[in-house]
Design a protein around this nucleic acid. Structure first.
Lengths: 119, 119
DNA sequence: CGCTTGTATTCCTCTGAAGGAATATATAGG
DNA sequence: CCTATATATTCCTTCAGAGGAATACAAGCG
């Protein structure tokens, strides 16, 4: 279950965003590698990763005593979709103006729907 | 100036997300309308709107003593773009598997991956 | 002018959550 | 076993920031 609230809350923290970006660069990282790359202490990294994992933003693969973390598309996509639902806001040409101008049966690009099929 | 950190920090708060969604439903709302619709107290609404505005997520139009708030595409789009930069994560089909199978039935579009070809 | 309405701001309190240190747990190796 | 390494967890402290109440500011109205 991908809960948008959990996800956006988790992303709303700078160090967690840093971890996400580090995980994006390297396809997969252990906790130690993230500690090294982030400059954070090991416990903070583990704790942040726990939050990210419970939000479906990262997943773990156990390997001996190492844990390999990688990004989880489910949470990332859910967040992306949440913002995508606002797409009409920045794609909105002036609809009121359209009506005032009273032009048109030929408007092919009318942003009434959330997404265009050929996106 | 659209600062991603400001934006994602601002969105990382449930009541601010509520305000964004309310503003999305009605194209434009006054503070009073948002107070009424959200159930929050007027000062909290004003304060949250201030945070949202400083993150380019909403904009204001003054009209007498009323302030009409509406969504600002700049901030919303910047957040959308930030998550879009992770698109390869959830669109990544198993490239290594592709090579192993060596029988692509229909090669539509292959996402670029940062890995070396002779992996 | 007061008076009222709409909004912003200030002050205060208090909770939640981030950070640090120490410790617990697990696993590999001698 | 004992030790070292990798990670997780617990406990504690601290602090940013969310919420509430009161107030300030601004603008319409009688």
């Amino acid at each position: 279950m991908v809960e948008t609230d959990l996800i956006l809350d988790a992303v709303g923290e700078p160090n967690r965003r840093l971890l996400l970006e580090l995980l994006h660069q390297h396809r997969e990282s252990t906790v130690s590698e993230l500690v090294d790359a982030s400059g954070l202490n090991q416990p903070q990294v583990s704790k942040h990763l726990k939050v990210l994992a419970s939000a479906s933003l990262v997943s773990v693969r156990a390997d001996g005593r190492k844990r390999h973390y990688q990004l989880d598309g489910r949470g990332l996509r859910a967040a992306h979709d949440w913002f995508a639902s606002f797409e009409d806001v920045w794609q909105a040409r002036f609809d009121a103006l359209d009506e005032l101008v009273s032009t048109p049966p030929e408007s092919e690009d009318h942003p009434k729907h959330p997404r265009s099929p050929d996106d």
